[in-house]
Design a protein around this nucleic acid. Structure first.
Lengths: 227, 227
DNA sequence: TTTTGTATTATTGTATGCAATCCATGGTCC
DNA sequence: GGACCATGGATTGCATACAATAATACAAAA
């Protein structure tokens, strides 16, 4: 939020609470827990070898993220994320990602632009070699740079959240089909649009890029169409 | 998130933690604490008459909302919300609000549509009478209905958050100037577009509605232009 | 059989205690 | 005088203890 502030992940990895939070988040997103399942503080604590305190604090955060619902004096229940949510996220992300690209046109730093170009170059290389893990990481990073380049803590925060949400689904996307190379080309076009300061084009391309990713998932049956 | 789930405020008002959370959130948004100020668990606890535990849990939530930054073993620092953030929120909200209106066209229930029409009618009444408080509440409710009518927990959650953020700024907006009646007219147009199932128009109007609200704030000097 | 009241248990909400960490102060050595 | 290190106090991170609430089981009454 505050615009010119420190770069620091909101949830640190080195506190017990941070570890519990990330672990539970992963477990919920990966489907380890059934939707509607009740999470008990002691049980989770024992499983992770910590007391109730960090578990409770993690619960409060997960609640705020919408991953669990806490009912006073009753319990914490997994809300999860279904295909409808995934679709919604992609459609929301598409618009916000477009906005990010638009803002990046004016605000991107030279260093960020350079990293983007390197990213595209490397991604092309790894795509040829078939290095899926690297492609996945580079894709993640590409979008992160874009979010940062948009120069808005609010937007960055938001987009990173959504990005996280669909991480698991996305992993499948890149592995399956040959979305990788197509995605790379789109990245390249986005960078070009930003570099040539064409805001409309940047927004349009970034928007379409997310839509394409989603439709690719549909096409490969990774997600049910919905509606 | 899970799409068909219970209507329940994420943060309950009746636990100590809930009260601490809302209180701190209000205090931060209203500017009681300086940006960068350190919040100490014991001090806050004493002020509100509670122990560190609920304060800590509230801190974790505020951190996730981006209102404070917690540095491990060090402290919690107010991040706050500045004019840039407000602008960003309005621009983000404008796009998402448009999306909400678009989705509402297909998904709004008869009851919701009816409540919207009543809302517009009542708002017109109170505008004539100059009842600012009621207008403020009705305006809040109008947007809430729209978010609910969009039929997407993800989007609703998001928009309600942003709505909260700018609440204080918004209060000034309605009081000042004669934005009230203009806003009412725009609401009415949005309802009409939704009722006549014109998605493009609904999105355009809802988008513009937020932009107008923001520009009105600028015009009245409630916010500095920025950039 | 169903329902209702009650006692018991499980679980959460909050407070407190203890260990680890950080920060400021002051002292020592160069 | 300035850089380095030790020490004490303050503050957080986590664990545990206690209180309040809700769920369950079971018995008694209709």
């Amino acid at each position: 939020m505050g615009s010119g502030d420190v770069k620091q992940e909101v949830t640190d990895k080195y506190s017990l609470r941070g570890r519990v939070f990330q672990r539970l988040r992963d477990d919920i997103l990966s489907g380890k827990y059934e939707v509607g399942e009740e999470l008990r503080e002691v049980a989770i604590g024992e499983e992770l070898g910590v007391s109730r305190t960090p578990v409770r604090e993690a619960f409060r955060q997960l609640e705020l993220e919408g991953l669990i619902q806490i009912i006073l004096n009753k319990g914490a229940y997994v809300v999860g994320i279904n295909d409808t949510d995934v679709r919604d996220i992609y459609l929301i992300r598409a618009r916000l990602e477009g906005l990010a690209a638009r803002w990046a046109v004016d605000r991107i730093t030279d260093a960020q632009l350079e990293e983007m170009e390197e990213n595209v170059y490397l991604a092309k290389f790894h795509a040829e070699k078939g290095h899926l893990e690297q492609m996945f990481d580079l894709d993640n990073r590409f979008h992160e740079i874009l979010y940062e380049a948009a120069g808005s803590k609010m937007l960055e925060h938001q987009l990173k959240d959504y990005h996280q949400y669909v991480l698991r689904v996305r992993k499948k996307t890149l592995n399956n089909a040959n979305r990788g190379p197509a995605s790379n080309l789109e990245h390249e076009a986005i960078v070009d649009a930003i570099k040539s300061r064409n805001a409309d084009e940047a927004e349009r391309l970034a928007h379409q890029h997310i839509i394409n990713a989603y439709e690719n998932m549909l096409k490969n049956g990774l997600i049910r169409p919905e509606d």
